[in-house]
Nucleic acid binder design. Structure first.
Lengths: 122, 122
DNA sequence: CACCTCTATAAGAGTATATCCTATATCTAT
DNA sequence: ATAGATATAGGATATACTCTTATAGAGGTG
């Protein structure tokens, strides 16, 4: 592949999984955007490569609009105000659905990987 | 989640994997867009849900521009002319890279799934 | 105190993707 | 003939992603 880091085979993508990742983090308790982004970045899937914070803020806003999370301003600590996000019942329901979906992805990925190995060998 | 079929937790996405899927199909020999789309649809990952053919044509065009595949018109058979795509050396190199990437995805997904299970139970 | 870095949020711009619809044309079966 | 499957592709719209820029407080160092 053209050895630009952009080549999808280098695996910079799989972006949609940021959705369950956020729900997983928030299932442990309310948290604000900046920390969410950092915690996601620490997940093995993201390989130490934290997602663009700007994108996470946007994503959280969309998720709130869709009812997966709710937000409130946290001014209890020193420092700039933090917008804390909390998972909703809808979000929890969605997270349970994600378990099945991720399992299906994993099965599919396993078979895609097997096919890729077979196709690549020669 | 809002039970629209659009909800990402229903797993309609993971679109980027269409890239390795196409390379895998083409590694078996040249093929034209329509069949490629159907074969991809039969892969377990895509769950019988064939990708939008229009999107596949577009994708193939992009892949050709980037050098992963080359095309030629096949008028040998009856019926409308078919634009056959063939994987290039670049594409084959990319496919080998995909094996490592998919393996990494799988590991990451496994851990994300484990985290989701833990987060969802209660 | 001036300066830098880290934390924290968010909008703007430009680009890239995705999806749906439409158009074309041939072939097969009823 | 008429419908449905095969086959390719462009237009329009919507969404998403990335990069840059703006704001602002906290903490540390020279």
């Amino acid at each position: 592949m053209p050895d630009r880091p952009k080549c999808p085979c280098m695996g910079g993508s799989l972006d949609k999984l940021i959705h369950p990742a956020i729900l997983i983090v928030l299932a442990r308790g309310p948290l604000h955007g900046y920390r969410i982004a950092r915690e996601i970045g620490e997940m093995p899937l993201f390989d130490g490569d934290a997602p663009d914070v700007s994108g996470v803020y946007r994503f959280l806003k969309t998720m709130e609009k869709k009812g997966f999370v709710v937000s409130f301003w946290d001014t209890s600590n020193t420092g700039p105000a933090k917008k804390s996000y909390q998972i909703t019942e809808t979000g929890e329901h969605c997270l349970r659905q994600w378990v099945a979906t991720l399992d299906r992805y994993r099965t599919g990925l396993t078979q895609l990987l097997r096919a890729a190995r077979k196709a690549a060998e020669h």
